[in-house]
Design a protein around this nucleic acid. Sequence first.
DNA 1: TTGTTTTTTTAGATGCGTCTAAATTAATGC
DNA 2: GCATTAATTTAGACGCATCTAAAAAAACAA
Lengths: 222, 222
Amino acid sequence: MPDQLSQAEENYLKAIYKISRQSGTPVSNNSISVEMNTSAASVTDMINRLSQKDLIHYQKRKGVRLTDLGEITAIHLVRKHRLWETFLVEKLNFTWDEVHELAEQLEHIQSRELINRLDEFLDFPKYDPHGDPIPDENGRITERQQVLLSQLPVGQKAVVVGVKDHSTPFLQYLERTGLLLGAELVIGERFAYDNSLQLEVADEQKLLISQKVGQNLYVQKK
Amino acid sequence: MPDQLSQAEENYLKAIYKISRQSGTPVSNNSISVEMNTSAASVTDMINRLSQKDLIHYQKRKGVRLTDLGEITAIHLVRKHRLWETFLVEKLNFTWDEVHELAEQLEHIQSRELINRLDEFLDFPKYDPHGDPIPDENGRITERQQVLLSQLPVGQKAVVVGVKDHSTPFLQYLERTGLLLGAELVIGERFAYDNSLQLEVADEQKLLISQKVGQNLYVQKK
DNA sequence: TTGTTTTTTTAGATGCGTCTAAATTAATGC
DNA sequence: GCATTAATTTAGACGCATCTAAAAAAACAA
Ligand SMILES: [Mn+2]
Ligand SMILES: [Mn+2]
Ligand SMILES: [Mn+2]
Ligand SMILES: [Mn+2]
């Protein structure tokens, strides 16, 4: 276990973890500065601190990779973030578009015991309010096999299981149209003109969604 | 509303509030440094920052008093601290001697909405696990009329409602002897030799407590 | 009242986390 | 291959929150 990390250090670790999840390759200094909204100079500084603490491997100008310690630490932060989000929605009746910023604060609370008790209190949820998997106490994540809605062929039945875009406007759009987690649908038609999709949802209702929406919804085939 | 305060600023405000609750008089620089376990020089620095932000009145070498803004801010922190402690005990099954340090972290989470929803979730508790009153959303505190157990005359019936000493050893002592919040008792005898007290507790059981214990338990006469 | 002790302030330093501006190095395009 | 562009590092700065050591002021005591 590392000694206590500062919130800044934790946020950098999370950013590096997030970027490397997407790319696989070593993470560039630049991509971190974009993700974190800080100057490249600040990133260089922090990179040195995190290397010092053996949380990342860094070869000058070659990019950053998390060490095992760094990765488990990052995963733990993700666990905390998603459990808190679940708590806020399930117990305090926040909506799924209100919880992210709060979880950004709560994820920095330091207590293994607290988070495990919270997990138990929530009855060991597997997914957070956005459909993202919640790592277990040992950092294990059970990825769901899922695809983007936009990748389904016409006629395919599917169920909504998650969102790629977590932004408030998108979540509120889904709220309005009823395309929430658990919603069942069939791909009715695909319009080549603008790649929009005609969906058949509950009660024979038809719903037209843009390409952008289809590219930000995760579904599971049925 | 002040703009966001740092955790350090919040902790100083709480300390000043706590000291002034006890003394009434302006708070000395020195008492703050003792309470916070920091150097007097650090206190001088912070005092200047807090004055700048109109959270305290400070006249050089005359001591510190909270402004209305400072006081309401401090009370709000106390509210958050006590609500979180209540949550940890009531919902996550922590014991009353385990929650203080966690609440020290949680009280700095910034969200009015969160704390009000937590309050509601807990069913608007009036007292925290240590018997301390929880200020309401507007900062109002309903003080209970209570006395120290040591001040009761022989023969007096009373019920335990709070602790003055919040230390783990004391709380664990109470746990062991069953002298918990809600416990009913009668003062049986007072020994002049060492000011210890013979109590009659549930089921005709007798319990001998030291002067120190009697001076750290709040009770309500019955 | 005058010396001693305590409190408070000042001076100067440090680490963290951030910035801008400039220099350096690497990558890209032609 | 060379020029331009992009990424990275260096240099120097700043605010916050802390410290120690020393000076100054106030309080206390004899
Ligand atoms: Mn989130
Ligand atoms: Mn989420
Ligand atoms: Mn407490
Ligand atoms: Mn308490």
